[in-house]
Design a protein around this nucleic acid. Structure first.
Lengths: 196, 196
DNA sequence: AAATAATGTTAAACTAGATTAACTTTTATT
DNA sequence: AATAAAAGTTAATCTAGTTTAACATTATTT
């Protein structure tokens, strides 16, 4: 039953490493399919992040609530992306972030121990995760650089250009939070851009 | 000859994966020792980053020069840390960042092709790199969150607490650049802290 | 020991973006 | 269709951090 659902995951994996049919079977036997409703949490700040989730459909936001009660969106994730609180997942300690579904969201999930077992059986996947993390780390560093070197307007234009699909699907006030600005200021930026 | 120098690298690796004596020999045969003088560049913006460098002694800064000619420090690295422009290294395309030595710096270097070969011979090291990247990515995400949720003063205090050794060794204006503030404002923060 | 370069400080004027608050538009619920 | 809730806008006031510029201190070189 999971075979049918998990096709996009296998395709994703095969972009990095080539799996035999047997290895694909092992992968599928160590993951679970799970569907969340809009508004549900995949991870909650304070809990241990038990799963690393590959998104089949839908959309999530990862956010942090600071001491002053302010919400800061760290990332969005859509089809073919992964989401989790990696820090919590790899150490199995309590999560710093929340991952919440912004739409009905279908996932394929790797549990921490399931993934460890899987890596023993198919060590080739270490390479997959290594490569995924390289990309994630590079993207994260670039975001830091943009924060320091671009104005809010430039960052917004970059976001629109880099993630047009996400920009369409998500309320503006969440994009403002992702960019680290207020919704009022984003609104001002948009009206400036409109009159240019 | 490299055996004597490379001891800290082997110790570092063994914190993540256990290598046989044979595997250690393979590792050593695929790396090079190189010493840089203060001021020399390990990587230059625009060049292809040929090496991933493990630091035996010394200190480096990784920085980006933006369109307006402004320098933004992305990271420092000292003994037992790795440095490179990963984005450039993994794709062997031109680097976005510079890595410059702030002191005389001794390194052990993995070339791109050397590392690929090494990973074929000792696939166990995929796990090492995967784990290193997990940590690097988590740290990078946390830095983004701090940028968004802390004031400049709070970020400076966090830096001092997290990297006391680095804070001692490096001019204040570079710390200001790392924190994304001006040296004048850091100076003000310090005088406020002093009079508290 | 002087001279120069590098680093750090202080303070006044300025600006990007935050805050507050009132209002409009869109979307979902009954 | 009416109501409520969620999302977005506008504008005035405010503030954290920047800019500019002059000066002070500490290293480095001759």
């Amino acid at each position: 039953m999971i075979q049918a659902k998990a096709q996009p995951l296998l395709e994703y994996i095969n972009r990095f490493v080539t799996l035999t049919h047997e290895e694909e079977t092992i992968v599928l036997s160590s993951v679970k399919y799970r569907k969340y409703l809009k508004g549900q949490y995949i991870v909650q700040q304070g809990d241990v992040c038990k799963y690393s989730s590959f998104i089949l459909s839908g959309c999530t936001k990862t956010f942090y609530v600071d001491d002053k009660g302010q919400e800061h969106i760290i990332m969005f994730a859509i089809e073919d992306w992964w989401t989790s609180d990696i820090g919590s997942f790899i150490t199995q300690s309590s999560a710093d972030y929340n991952v919440q579904c912004l739409e009905e969201t279908e996932t394929i999930q790797f549990s921490y121990y399931g993934q460890e077992e899987l890596l023993k059986k198919v060590p080739k996947l270490e390479r997959l995760f290594r490569m995924m993390l390289e990309r994630a780390f590079v993207a994260s560093q670039k975001r830091i650089v943009r924060n320091f070197s671009l104005t809010a307007k430039e960052q917004y234009l970059h976001f629109k250009e880099q993630y047009p699909e996400i920009e369409q699907r998500i309320p503006q006030y969440m994009i403002a939070s992702y960019l680290g600005i207020t919704k009022e200021f984003l609104s001002k930026i948009k009206s400036e851009l409109a009159s240019e």
